[in-house]
Structure formats: C-alpha cells, structure tokens
Amino acid sequence: MITVQNLVKMYGEKAAVDDLSFEIPPGTVTGFLGPNGAGKSTTMRMLVGLESPTSGSAMVNGRSYVEHKAPMREIGVLLDAGAIHPGRSARNHLLSLAYTHTLPARRVEEMLDLVGLTDVAAERAGGFSLGMRQRLGIASALLGDPATVMLDEPVNGLDPEGIRWIRALLRGLAAEGRTVFVSSHLMSEMALTAEQLIIVGRGRLVADISVEDLVARSATSVRVRSPQASSLRPLLAGDGITVSTDLDGTLDVIGLSPEAIGTRAATAGITLYELAVQQASLEEAFMELTHDDVEYHGSSEIHPRTATLSPERKAA
C-alpha cells in the first residue's frame, strides 16, 4: 500500500512534484506513467526517504519509510541499477544489504538463483552488463521478501531478452499477490503489464485510471482518403468535429461516423478511395493526456496531426 498525499517537491522555484496525490492498493500492478521530467523518479525517491518532501507526505503501508523497523521488508525498490560499487562482487553486494536487516546469507543465494546470477556471483559487479545489473537490482529489491515492489524504469536500456524477462517477472510478482508499482515513460510497455495507471505530467497528476478505461476513453477517428480531399474538407466541418490533414493528404475526422462522411461525400459527388474507423492506440491516448505536460517538446513539424488534434481532444 502506497499513499501519496499533496506531495510537493520544490527545487528552487521549480516544482518537480506539484501537489501529487494517489493511492496504490495492495495486490495490483500499477504503472507510473509520464514523460521524462514529470517527477516520477523524484516521487519514488521521496517514498523511500532518499529525498524529503517540501510538503505533503509519501507513505508506505501507513508510515513514512524511515519509520519502519524493517523497511526492506515493507517495500523492495530498484531505482537505479547503477547504484552499486563496481569493485564489489554481486554476492558481497547482496550480503551487505541482507545483513542490515539480519537476513541470513542463505537468502542471498536464493535471490542470486532467482535472478540467474549464481554463476557470476563472485565476479566484480563493475564488469556486469546493464541487463545483469538490472537483475542484481531486482535481487536486492526482493531480498526482504516485500509485499510491495517499486521499480523505476526497469526496462530502460535493456535488450529484448532483458525486457521479456522483466515483463515476465512483473507478472509473476503480481500473480503472487504483491503490489507492483513500476514507472515508465512508454505507454506501450505499461499496457502489457499494468492494470492501473497513475499518469503524471510536470509533477501533477494527469489521470488515475485503469488501462481498460483508458482504452474505452480513447477517441476513435475516421480515416478518409480521397482525390478531392480539399473539396470534401469544408463539407465535414461543424461543431464538435475535428478534421485534420495528414502529410499524404488523407483526412482524419473525429466526431462524425463513417456513414455520415460517406453520405456527405456521395451527395457532393466526391470520390472516396478509403473510409476506415481508426481506434486510437493507448500510446496516442497517453500522448494526448500528457501533451501539454511534456517538459521539452521536439519540433512538431513531422507530426502536424498530433499537434492539431490534441487541444480539441483534451477539451472533449
């Protein structure tokens, strides 16, 4: 159980986390989603006491992390797989963590076995690939057999093999009834594992929504391809209707059914080559929700469609 209430973290004048409140109930996989710089890592760091909130609270199982007698047994975290001494072996790294909580050395061997690092346990962790470090980080997160597991961008920089492993692991942890709180800036990644989503942008809560609801909410558009697109376009205009033109001249229409579009085109004698309903992907739904909250925009010239659509969609 993670409870964040009116959490604020200021860096000088800038709010990294701005009045954020949410709750992660036990036994779910919750994705913590937002563009880079949205305050996800800062929130996670405050949850485990690496940073103190400017105001508000971040609690784990009803208490602040620091107040727990055995914090590693309440919540296991992997915030940065690189947070290891490169000169120390994987086994000694885990031992040093296990001993703080008087966990036996046997537990370390079990975790090494679990993440598949037993064969290289005596080697210096500095020589590990990113994927191996990620495994070592997972092993340290699970050392205390915590009911809640929190991972910050666990698939970042991993090869497909490693990504597959992390996905299976997250599903496994959830199947055991653990609470999994995992951050990502990729909607597609979350769609595969999470049931619930906490979406943030610029430190603020954008949405606290189930993946299912997000899919249902995401707008559908109609793709219209016609050699007379410029003549057709004015005929489709109206209240609550958005028409945008792609680079190749196809129209994307929101707010009109394909039947209505087809009828209007036929009445005006306009030829249609294509008329198809488009279900917006989760990625697009996410982009829409966070578009205004992206910290650093790239040039939007390549994607005029997204740029023209968002404001209307957000208002709707």
Binding site: G49, P71, L79, G82, A83, I84, P86, T100, H101
Partner: peptide, 11 residues
C-alpha cells in the same frame, strides 16, 4: 559510484 543510494535505502 551511486552505491550510497542503495546503502541509505537499506538503512
């Protein structure tokens, strides 16, 4: 090395 964040998370 960043190990300190792991150390201070454990303690």
């Amino acid at each position: 090395t960043g190990q300190i964040r792991t150390t201070l998370t454990a303690v």
